[in-house]
Design a protein around this nucleic acid. Structure first.
Lengths: 235, 235
DNA sequence: GCGTTCCGTGACAATGCTGTGACGGTAGCG
DNA sequence: CGCTACCGTCACAGCATTGTCACGGAACGC
């Protein structure tokens, strides 16, 4: 079979021997592995094809691991990307800062392959192990994150970038109510300053875009609470 | 704000000094902390009020941490519950097995509080830091905090925001009588100034909203005391 | 039975919340 | 540069919700 079914791990690390070792062990475990020693290159490759998990070295030539991490967390597309930091024992203080910057876990060199693989498994399982690739469906709507396409009742919908991310977010958590602040954090970003009422406007634009004539509105308003992707009637 | 907004961490650990230390540091970080040294009791408490994150010691008197972990992973309600294992340095092999059993992370004793807190933050962020909200049931009524929906006998009920919070509060403490002041503190807020009699009006609105024709009233009035959610079957 | 206390009920004015259209600003693109 | 698409903010209207009150009836103690 091709490698496309396997979880895809990107290693960002410049010590060649370590990379060889990691690649050998991870591929033996059934992962698809790519690597790069350059932070900037990593950013590009992640942008064009986001991995399922990132192994990130703290010490890097062009861009520090922590900086790369920060950049990834700033983008909505990679905000959920599982990241494990590789750090030398002496840099433990930095690793702590790394976690706060947005890494999900860290491991200190030297480490046992066994421990690393266990952590990778735990992290992949938690993130659903195939984060970005599955189509999202609800009622008669289908959104394909890969091809960036939305379809309702066979006809393609035209959504703006924000509307797309908004719908994607709600599709990932159907039937759950989110406050405007929740939506802002998830769709716009954590440190962005935007009026909460802005969500209303985009909800309206989303509604206008997805609700054709005669079709029911699947965006439910919950007064004094927020919005949810749900049918108003009971299923 | 009350503790209900803070992330709730349950510590399962039988070394009292360690618990004291953890509690002190975690509460300082703004977490709500509970603890128990008994695995069985932990299971009960998690069942009735699932925490946002679990700190779990490997060595426990009645039930080993790994067994508790396994049990939690078997139940749908706690399958996603973030778990961090506490383990002694010498037990690292076990910790690896722990991760495969379903723990999300582990940390070896002795550890720095700093590192632990960083991991807690990372894990909470990953899990959406959304508290596990379970459906609340009583008699033939079901309230789902996540979807903000109330159902009785299969039909959806329309409640205003205050009525919803009121019902949610009573559902969390069934069969218990609360004075109007209690209700005001819990549902309206501690520093809000509202006439106690206002509760009466909302109780009436709640009754009107949830009691369909031919259905019994599950809101019981206790004269000179307050209200309770209970079946009023007194001869 | 009778007075007193307490609660249910309907009405109402004030407030709060959301839908909607419009507007100016900006980034991308030919 | 002009054009287009998109974004964030605002003002306003319409409606839902809220807190309070007055009235009357029910429950209670004696």
């Amino acid at each position: 079979m091709s490698d496309h079914n396997k979880p895809y791990i990107l290693i960002v690390e410049d010590e060649a021997p370590l990379v060889t070792l990691l690649r050998y062990n991870l591929e033996k475990q059934g992962f698809r592995v790519e690597d790069t020693g350059d932070g900037g290159e990593a950013l590009t490759r992640i942008t064009e094809a986001p991995p399922d998990l990132l192994l990130l070295d703290w010490m890097l030539p062009t861009m520090s691991g922590i900086e790369l991490c920060r950049q990834l967390r700033r983008r909505p597309a990679t905000r959920q990307l599982p990241i494990i930091m590789l750090t030398a024992r002496a840099e433990e203080q930095d690793a702590v800062r790394g976690l706060d910057t947005g890494a999900d876990d860290y491991i200190t060199k030297p480490f046992s392959t066994e421990a690393l693989i266990a952590r990778i498994r735990a992290l992949l399982r938690r993130s659903g192990s195939v984060p970005q690739k599955l189509k999202l469906n609800f009622h008669d709507i289908s959104l394909d994150p890969a091809s960036h396409r939305v379809i309702r009742n066979g006809r393609a919908l035209h959504l703006g970038p924000t509307e797309f991310r908004l719908l994607e977010f709600f599709l990932r958590h159907p039937k759950r109510v989110f406050s405007r602040e929740d939506v802002l954090n998830a769709v716009w970003g954590r440190d962005i300053h935007v009026e909460p009422r802005t969500v209303d406007v985009h909800i309206r634009r989303l509604r206008k875009a997805i609700n054709g004539p005669g079709e029911i509105d699947i965006v439910r308003t919950v007064r004094a609470a927020g919005y949810a992707l749900d049918l108003d009637e009971i299923a």
